[in-house]
Design a binder for these strands. Structure first.
Lengths: 103, 103
DNA sequence: GATCTATTTGGTTATTTAGCCAAATAACCA
DNA sequence: TGGTTATTTGGCTAAATAACCAAATAGATC
């Protein structure tokens, strides 16, 4: 496997961690600050075990960081740059239709 | 389905278009300028039909734009902002290990 | 019009992913 | 200690994805 491909694999794993509606929703919500799993479960509207698996996948990819306090586990974005990342996204997939698709 | 979720679905589709080693490799290569399918096939090292399906998926997501000239079809990035997007990625998934994972 | 070339499309198969339920774990409180 | 709450893990099934091959399409060129 060429070096350029293994690099792309690592990077693709990070992107994949955001490439699901629920996971992206979680990432967007965490831009405003940390949240615990039960709050994220309410946000996503899925089984807590499902949300938990999304979260551990995002943590493993390096996108999220977790922190246990009392009974709750709080998750937050690992990197501020994710905000820019998501804003770039809006240029490609705008919430409201524009005359030109991008840029 | 809540509005925030449909928005996340559209955005997730864009991210998904980059969330595969071959597709990311393609996007990275296209940062240097347009390429035709047969060149991208050599880059990725997969069957041309496989590459073609990746490309049409990326085009549908709004990430790529294509342009037919003569017998060839040339693909290029739809948006310059993708460069920033990928650079942010490097902070989360660096090519070389850093002491701290991010930021 | 026939043929060549580049690309896409359709079909099939193997693999991966996402979801839920039930059970396990871990921390707190009585 | 035993119970309660929050979260994770394991197991299973259904759905989505990626890969290949073969066939179809669409332009060039003869």
């Amino acid at each position: 496997m060429p070096a350029s491909k293994t690099v792309s694999s690592k990077r693709a794993a990070v992107i994949k961690a955001l490439a699901h509606p629920s996971r992206l929703l979680i990432a967007e919500a965490l831009m405003d600050g940390e949240m615990c799993v039960c709050d994220l479960k309410d946000l996503v509207g899925a089984d807590m075990s499902t949300v938990s698996k999304h979260l551990s996948m995002m943590r493993q990819a390096g996108v999220l960081v977790s922190d246990k306090r009392g009974l709750n586990i709080y998750y937050r974005l690992a990197c501020d740059c994710l905000g820019d990342f998501l804003r770039c996204l809006d240029q490609l997939a705008p919430k409201k239709a524009k005359t030109k698709p991008c840029c």
